[in-house]
Design a binder for these strands. Structure first.
Length: 489
RNA sequence: GCCGCGUUCGUCUAGGGGUCUAGGACGCCGGCCUUUCACGCCGGUAACACGGGUUCAAAUCCCGUACGCGGUACCA
């Protein structure tokens, strides 16, 4: 019988949800949905000094925005409430006590200065571990009476007594067997002097209590994992299956940190991507492929399709550099996949925010014209602003090349022709223009480019006949007048 | 420094002993389509880090080196 998968995404509310965090959440979610398992959200708010009030809301909003639904956690509840570590202190303290009583952990009274001195010794023994703990002030080096006295009057922490001379190995679903010598491991602080647990204790206790079967997290946790295994061992618990994801790197190879990314103009929080106009499905698809692929040459997957196709053993081991170009390509792909009506609905708020008014019908018409040439929805009101208001500038190169001495007169004549028989379809507009040039015995080029210039100010863009229908005779004449006035004066 | 994890086109990657004169995608460059731009299509550019082994045969297995990344907190 297969075990029911229970996975968790366990962010710290220290800032806006990071793009790397979203990928971790995504992989957890995919495994949960694929197996019919449970996706838990747990807020790891044990560091009071780094707590950011808006962070939790942002995490929840961001997950909701991309469509990663939570089965247990803040807001939705579940059998293991509370899902905030800050509200589970009693549990951690009890377990820390249990470890001390069993001889797997001890009290330490070292001052920050003493710890700094240890680390700066530079004699190769600068870790607080099996080789040095006897030299520090703790319940292992002090007598029972001294310990009791210190406990009563000094701040203290509880440290894990990492076993001596052991090899700690574990199986990682992505990397295979990974092993460490226990002697190089720090005697990790489990309980801080403020009584709150460190990540390591809280994480292990909660994963065990919440029945987590797979720990899927970033590679930055790989070096801490032997400490966690040591903790599971000390408690007599079976560790969950570990899976350490390759890191998402900045486009130049370093860590995709906030500072690093800002410098390169790379957004790092999910919120920024949302605000920049990325579609959730594009972001998710892109992120999924930073470290995973299904083995075929297919690259476009909806969330549901990812659920079907995902597997942990196809996750790679190499850090992946973030590529804005690829993300934009994904965004464009998904934008093109939208129907004009869907696109219009997405564009509507942006259009109104600009103060433009347009009917649904016209906006949809515009969407069909621009669908294949935009990367972001907001391109509709920026790159294609001329659909809402006459151009304010005219492409200089185009004017120089295509706007001749007789252009104004020709355009005016065309305006009259169009007013006399306004085309209702692109085909009719096509016939109108062709009839017009045939009658006057001028080349198509004499009218097409200048007309486009007058309407949009640009040299490229959607089908001109389609645009003629969109604008109608009155607006076309108006823009012709404006263009003649501005270009020829 | 120490510990760990990595290393295939610029980037994301396929491949896991012979089918690899290494495949796909993004980007870039050509061409076609077209009144233009885009979309689409066709083509091009470009990679197995290095050195030793093992083997009839290595991008693929082993060792070493180099390089990169991560960790080395009473942060997560």
């Amino acid at each position: 019988m297969a075990i029911l998968v229970r996975v968790r995404f366990a962010p710290s509310p220290t800032g806006l949800l990071h793009i790397g965090g979203l990928r971790t959440a995504l992989y957890n979610y995919l495994l949960a949905r694929q197996t019919g398992g449970t996706f838990v959200l747990r807020i790891e708010d044990t560091d009071q000094t780094r707590y950011v009030a808006e962070a939790e809301g942002d995490i929840l909003d961001s997950l909701r925005w991309v469509g990663l639904s939570i089965d247990e956690g803040p807001g939705v509840g579940g059998p293991h409430e509370p899902y905030y570590q800050s509200q589970r202190s009693d549990l951690y303290q009890a377990y820390a006590q249990q470890l001390v009583d069993a001889g797997h952990a001890y009290y330490a009274f070292d001052t920050p200065d003493a710890l700094r001195a240890l680390r700066e010794r530079g004699d190769g023994n600068t870790a607080y571990h099996t080789a040095t703990r006897g030299q520090m002030r703790n319940s292992l080096s002090l007598s029972e009476a001294e310990t009791a006295d210190a406990l009563a009057r000094e701040p203290y922490v509880v440290r894990l007594k990492v076993p001596t001379g052991e090899t700690i190995a574990f199986d990682d679903a992505i990397r295979g067997t990974v092993s460490f010598q226990s002697d190089v491991l720090d005697d990790q602080v489990l309980l801080k002097s403020d009584g709150l647990p460190t990540y390591h204790l809280a994480n292990v206790v909660d994963d065990h209590h919440m029945g987590i079967t797979h720990v899927i997290r970033g590679e930055e946790w790989l070096p801490s994992t032997p400490k966690h295994i040591a903790l599971y061992n000390a408690f007599g618990w079976t560790p969950p299956q570990m899976a350490h994801l390759p890191l998402i790197l900045s486009p130049t190879g370093g860590k995709l940190s906030k500072r690093n990314a800002d410098k390169m103009g790379i957004p790092v929080s999910v919120r920024q991507y949302r605000e920049a106009g990325y579609l959730p499905e594009a972001l998710l698809n892109f992120l999924a492929f930073l470290g995973w692929n299904d083995g075929t040459e297919r690259e476009l997957f909806t969330l549901d399709e990812l659920v079907q196709a995902f597997s942990l053993d196809r996750v790679g081991t190499t850090g992946a550099q973030f590529s804005m170009d690829k993300l934009q390509w994904y965004n464009q792909q998904y934008l093109m996949a939208h129907t004009p009506a869907e696109l219009a609905a997405l564009a509507r708020p942006l259009v109104e925010a600009e103060g433009f008014s347009i009917t649904d019908e016209a906006l949809e018409h515009m969407a069909t014209m621009t669908r294949e040439r935009i990367v972001f929805v907001h391109d509709i009101v920026t790159s294609y602003r001329y659909f809402f208001a006459p151009p304010t500038a005219y492409n200089a190169k185009g004017v120089k090349k295509r706007w001749k001495a007789d252009t104004g007169a020709l355009l005016n004549a065309f305006g009259e022709t169009m007013t006399a028989a306004p085309p209702e379809t692109a085909e009719a507009a096509h016939d109108l223009v062709h009839g017009f040039v045939a009658e006057r015995e001028v080349g198509l080029g004499k009218i097409m480019a200048p007309l486009r210039l007058a309407l949009s100010g640009e040299m490229g863009g959607p089908d001109l006949f389609e645009m003629l229908v969109f604008f109608g005779a009155a607006e076309t004449v108006h823009r012709i007048d404006l263009a003649i006035e501005r270009i020829e004066s």
